[in-house]
Each structure stands twice: as structure tokens, then as C-alpha cells.
């Protein structure tokens, strides 16, 4: 049913460190790689090698430029996928019950055999987290790799979402935000984990760690005293010559 649970036992989600992300897009590729051959319909591409390629992705990395009032501009790489909102507007609008939020861990999923592909859930999502697959005609979204995190056939270190497992910079963290003592909750509290578009009232579970302010270093240059300009103002005859030559 598309009624949201009043409370979920756990709140599994991602903590994404915007200070650390290097914008390599490895999470995008590993996400597509895992999810195109596991849960649900594959993530299709249209004209992948043609003039106008397009395809379904559950995770995309934007890049933004921040220009502070003083100092140099900063480039921030910004991975974006489903935030598994507590008050998920995509779930309640679904007419068929295909979209649902799990009571046990808060993951928002689509039951693809019930999806009619009306697209209303994608309309209701502020974050662009849902994409209608052009080949299958059903809605695709991040599953938080539900087929990895509980998969006992995988070695334990692999039981995290593919994007987290692959991130070479360690910018992505996975855990339970309902537990205040979990690593993600602690890190989020310490670094001021923030919600995207809080004014939309979706109460996202995923949090973003803001880029830390650039530290400023005092300029220390051991050679500076030796490089002081040696040219002095000329005096006497040389001063007269200098002036005269200037006038000519």
C-alpha cells in the first residue's frame, strides 16, 4: 500500500561527503553495473554509441561552482540519488501501490510488476531520483542495493551499496540513521550533515556533509627578505640626469 509507515524500525541511508568527493563518477558506473543485472528490469540505454546517447541512471554526479564573497571559487562534485525520504511524496501519489516504503528499514522501492509507468512519482520527487526506463516502461530508482546489503552469499565487506563499496575517495558512507550511535549518525552530527531542499518537507534520510571552509595560511616565504628590491632613488647628478631623460 502507498500509505507511508508512521515509523520505520531502521532508517538505512547514505551519508555523502561533499568535501571529499572528487567527482570521478565511479559510483555512477558501479551503480549502473550492479543494478542493470540484478534487482528488477535492466537500466537501458538508448543510442548508447549514437549521436544522442541517453539512458537510465539511479545515481548522477553534478558539479557546482561556489563563489564566496572573498577568496577563490570552489568546485563541488555532487552525487545525487534517492534520499529514501521519511515523508516520501513519490510513494503516496502512486495509484497502483507499486511504490512503497519498507517498515523494517525505510528503503523506498518499486514493485515493477505493479508499475503502470504513469510517471507521477517522478513528478512528485523534488530530487530527480526516479527515472522511467524508456525500454521497460517502468519506474527505476535507487534500491539502496537491497540485494547486496542483506546478501549472505557476498563476503561481508561487500554487503554495502555498490556506490559505497566502489568510492575510491571514501566520500560515501552507508548506515542506520535511526541509531544515534551508528557511524553515519555520529559523522553526520559532527560535520553538520544537511538535508537537501528541507522546505519541501520530505524529511530525507540521506544526508550531505557540507564542504569544509578552506583554511587560510599565513604567507611564509623564507626568501622574501633577500628578494627586497635593491633599486634606490638616485641622488645628485644621477637624479638630474634621470629627470632630464624623463623629459625628453
Amino acid at each position: 500500500m502507498t500509505e507511508l509507515p508512521t515509523k520505520t524500525d531502521r532508517k538505512l541511508g547514505l551519508l555523502i561527503d561533499l568535501d571529499t568527493c572528487v567527482g570521478c563518477h565511479a559510483c555512477v558506473i558501479s551503480c549502473k553495473g550492479w543494478n542493470t543485472e540484478n534487482y528488477g528490469a535492466p537500466l537501458s540505454d538508448q543510442s548508447a554509441y549514437g549521436a544522442n546517447p541517453s539512458g537510465t541512471f539511479l545515481n548522477r554526479v553534478h558539479s557546482y561552482e561556489i563563489t564566496p564573497d572573498v577568496g577563490a571559487a570552489q568546485l563541488i562534485h555532487f552525487p545525487k540519488s534517492c534520499l529514501h525520504c521519511e515523508d516520501a511524496p513519490c510513494v503516496t501519489v502512486c495509484p497502483t501501490g507499486a511504490s512503497y516504503k519498507r517498515v523494517e528499514d525505510g528503503i523506498v522501492l518499486v514493485n515493477e510488476s505493479d508499475c503502470i509507468g504513469c510517471g507521477l512519482c517522478a513528478w512528485a520527487c523534488p530530487y530527480g531520483a526516479r527515472e522511467l526506463d524508456a525500454a521497460e516502461g517502468v519506474m527505476k530508482k535507487c534500491t539502496l542495493c537491497v540485494d547486496r546489503i542483506y546478501n549472505e552469499n557476498l563476503p561481508e565487506e561487500d554487503r554495502v551499496p555498490a556506490c559505497v563499496r566502489t568510492c575510491p575517495a571514501g566520500a560515501r558512507h552507508f548506515g542506520d540513521f535511526a541509531d544515534p550511535d551508528s557511524a553515519v549518525s555520529k559523522l553526520s552530527a559532527e560535520r553538520g550533515g544537511m538535508d537537501l531542499m528541507p522546505e519541501q518537507g520530505t524529511k530525507p534520510v540521506n544526508k550531505y556533509l557540507p564542504p569544509r571552509p578552506k583554511d587560510t595560511m599565513e604567507e611564509i616565504d623564507v626568501l622574501a627578505p633577500l628578494l627586497a628590491p635593491v633599486a634606490e632613488e638616485p641622488k645628485g647628478f644621477m637624479a638630474w640626469l634621470d629627470k632630464t631623460l624623463e623629459k625628453i
Partner: peptide, 23 residues
């Protein structure tokens, strides 16, 4: 508010995720 980056300065979309279009 969409990026949460406003507190650090003026935000501008620098690069989209892909060169092509999408859904």
C-alpha cells in the same frame, strides 16, 4: 537550498552529470 551549498557563497551549476540528455 537544492544543494545546501548556499551558505558557502553563490552557487552556479558548472557541469551536468552527462553530456547527453535524460528522462
Amino acid at each position: 537550498t537544492a544543494t545546501g551549498l548556499g551558505r558557502n557563497g553563490a552557487v552556479r551549476a558548472f557541469e551536468p552529470p552527462h553530456t547527453g540528455t535524460n528522462y
